[in-house]
Computed example of a mutant assay.
Amino acid sequence: MMQTVVSVLNADLLAFQEVDSVDALSRVIDPDEYNFYFSDRAKYHQKSRGSNQFTGWAVKKNIEVIDHADFAPLGLPTFLSKGNLRYGSYIEVRRENQPPLHLLSIHLKSGCFETPVRRNNSCKKLERQIDALSVWIKTRQKLGHEFVIAGDFNHYMNTSNEWVWETLQKEAGKGNLINLSEHTIAKCKARRFNYRTKRWEQVVYDKLIDHIIASPGVLSSDIIPLAKQFRYSYHSVANYRLSDHCPVYVGL
């Protein structure tokens, strides 16, 4: 089923998160059609008892790519460790008659979905990640790079008076950052295991935590394209083990 979704979207660039391995990704995305660029963590991270959750990109083979080092500060490294959170997977793609596009696939800390909760440990970590992300954005700006950041922010960034988007906008400077998924309507059907009843349940997630933000220069016109959410049918959710995230996509 996920192969069908990828085929229907037929995207040139796919930002992925929570992927265990090249073998796992190859079951969903055709390796004869796409090149895979995994987070550097996949090179040294030992296999855990469960599954690994790497970020990365799948890019159609006709597109020239520079595979940059991960943006490791998102892992919140310390003096004693490289950090245990996910890194940002950073690539650069060449475009005909246009400046190169710098791309970051991210998966931020879970557990801080809404604005009012700012004091718990998850929110403190997310706040540090947003500060780190602001540094990456300002670096791209100083170098004159056009960029897109896509992935799982684990935050309802489109709600009013929330701090993640406000912080990113403030740090980037007024008008220097656009949220391509700002008006995306979320209605993602999924299955969730209820540990209390020991049963799978169908749910609908009506708030967006997957977002796409970019520098204004990536647009081909003054009209900001609206990112859309690809929604699974109830039949597909009931009969296949799908992701609990519905893909968000946009044309530039």
Rank of each mutant, 00 (worst) to 15 (best):
V135Y: 14
N194Y: 12
P77H: 10
A58T: 01
I224K: 09
K82Y: 15
V5H: 07
I106D: 09
Y232M: 01
F71V: 01
H155N: 11
A172L: 01
N35R: 12
L133F: 11
A227N: 04
V135R: 10
C246M: 03
P116R: 07
V65C: 06
Q169S: 07
V93H: 06
K61H: 06
L126R: 03
V250L: 02
Y232C: 08
R86M: 06
N120K: 00
L104K: 00
K125F: 13
I137Y: 02
I223K: 09
V148T: 00
G217W: 00
D70G: 05
V5S: 06
H45M: 14
Y44Q: 12
K60T: 13
D206P: 06
Y87D: 10
E18S: 13
M1N: 12
E201S: 08
I224Y: 04
L14C: 10
Q46H: 11
L80T: 15
Y90L: 11
V204Y: 08
E127Q: 15
S215G: 05
M1T: 12
V93Y: 02
A214K: 07
E127Y: 14
V5A: 04
N62I: 10
R118T: 05
N194C: 02
S89K: 13
G75V: 04
L108A: 02
T167I: 07
D40Y: 03
R231W: 14
K124Y: 11
A190G: 11
I212D: 05
